[in-house]
Simulated scan of single mutants.
Amino acid sequence: MNKNMDTNNETPVRTFCTGRFLIDLPAGSQLSGGNYQYAFARIEAPKTMGKDDFEKEVLARATYLRTTQHDSGAPMLIDIIRPDHDSAILVSWNHDASTVVMSMTGYRWTEGRSFSFSMKVDDDHHSEGLDAMRQLLFNLRYRPEDDIPTEPGYCFEGGFIANPEWENEEAGIDIDIAGHPDAFVSVWFYPLAMSKHDRPLLDRMGDVLQMLGRMATSVHVLRRGDRQVGPYKGQEFLVSAPNSGGLRGHSFIWETEGEGTLDTPALKIELTTGHRDKNGNPQQTRLTDEQAMKLWDEVLDSFRLRPIRAVPASLTPT
Results as ranks from 00 to 15, higher is better:
Met1Asp: 13
Met1Phe: 13
Asn9Cys: 07
Thr15Ala: 09
Leu25Lys: 04
Ser29Glu: 04
Ser29Ala: 07
Gln30Met: 03
Ser32Ile: 10
Gly33Cys: 02
Tyr36Ile: 03
Tyr36Asn: 07
Ala45Tyr: 05
Met49Ala: 07
Met49Tyr: 11
Lys51Gln: 14
Lys56Leu: 11
Arg61His: 14
Arg61Ile: 10
Thr63Pro: 01
Tyr64Phe: 13
Leu65Arg: 08
Thr68Glu: 12
His70Leu: 08
Met76Gln: 07
Met76Asn: 02
Met76Tyr: 05
Asp79Asn: 14
Ile81Thr: 11
Pro83Lys: 03
Ser87Cys: 08
Ile89Ala: 07
Leu90Pro: 10
Ser92Trp: 02
Asp96Cys: 03
Met102Leu: 14
Thr105Trp: 07
Gly106His: 01
Arg108Gln: 12
Arg108Thr: 06
Asp124Met: 10
Asp131Ala: 15
Leu137Arg: 03
Arg141Leu: 06
Ile148Val: 15
Tyr154Asp: 07
Gly159Val: 03
Ala162Gln: 14
Asn163Pro: 01
Ile173Asp: 09
Ile173Cys: 04
Asp176His: 09
Pro181Gly: 12
Asp182Gln: 06
Trp188Pro: 00
Phe189Val: 00
Met194Asp: 14
Asp198Gly: 05
Pro200Gly: 09
Asp203Cys: 03
Arg204Thr: 13
Met205Ser: 12
Gly206Arg: 02
Val208Tyr: 04
Val208Asn: 04
Gly213Ile: 00
Val219Glu: 12
His220Met: 11
His220Ser: 13
His220Val: 15
Val221Thr: 13
Leu222Ile: 00
Arg224Lys: 15
Arg224Gln: 14
Arg227Phe: 07
Val229Cys: 08
Lys233Trp: 05
Gln235Asp: 12
Glu236Phe: 06
Phe237Tyr: 15
Leu238Thr: 05
Leu238Tyr: 12
Leu238His: 15
Val239Met: 04
Leu247Gly: 09
Arg248Leu: 10
Gly249Gln: 04
Ile253Gly: 00
Trp254His: 05
Glu257Thr: 10
Gly260Ser: 05
Thr261Trp: 02
Asp263Asn: 15
Asp263Ala: 14
Ala266Val: 00
Ile269Val: 15
Glu270Asp: 09
Gly274Tyr: 06
His275Ser: 13
Arg276Met: 12
Asn281Cys: 08
Gln283Ser: 08
Gln283Lys: 01
Thr285Leu: 01
Leu287Asp: 11
Val299Tyr: 08
Asp301Ile: 03
Ser302Met: 06
Ser302Phe: 07
Arg309Pro: 01
Ala310Cys: 01
Pro312Tyr: 06
Ser314Leu: 01
Leu315Asp: 13
Thr316Asn: 12
Thr316Glu: 13
